[in-house]
Design a protein around this nucleic acid. Structure first.
Length: 108
DNA sequence: CCGATGACCAAAC
DNA sequence: TGTTTGGCCATCG
């Protein structure tokens, strides 16, 4: 299992720009980002791109699943690291690692 | 193109 | 209720 870094493709680049476009204190879901990138059913693909995004300057912490929950495999200290990053953005994370999408969801 | 993997989503068992 | 399966799309070998 050597899945390692690779070059950003058109889809990845779009995802990066979208994620970087998320205002501070707001959140976006995988499905939302995927839809903006042109793939309303590419949530999994977005997850893959974000996993690779750790080598880019992308605030992928602002991207959560549709339940407002943190990602399963976070590459930066686990869910605690993710929670800390979100709180630093001004987002309140519940003890169960979920957030209020109605309150923090980014609506362009 | 195919098979396998993945930080997702939804339904089925 | 917890686990599995299928679907989605992208990427690697």
């Amino acid at each position: 299992m050597l899945k390692k870094k690779k070059q950003p493709s058109a889809f990845a680049k779009k995802v990066y720009e979208i994620v970087q476009s998320i205002p501070k204190g707001k959140l976006a879901t995988y499905g939302q980002v995927a839809a903006m990138a042109g793939k309303p059913r590419g949530a999994q693909a977005v997850g893959w791109i974000l996993h690779d995004a750790d080598q880019h300057e992308v605030p992928y912490q602002r991207v959560v699943n549709r339940l407002g929950g943190l990602a399963r495999g976070y590459t930066n200290g686990g869910p605690l690291g993710h929670k800390k990053d979100l709180e630093r953005e001004g987002i309140t994370v519940r003890p169960d690692f979920s957030v209020d999408l109605e309150k923090y969801l980014w609506r362009p």
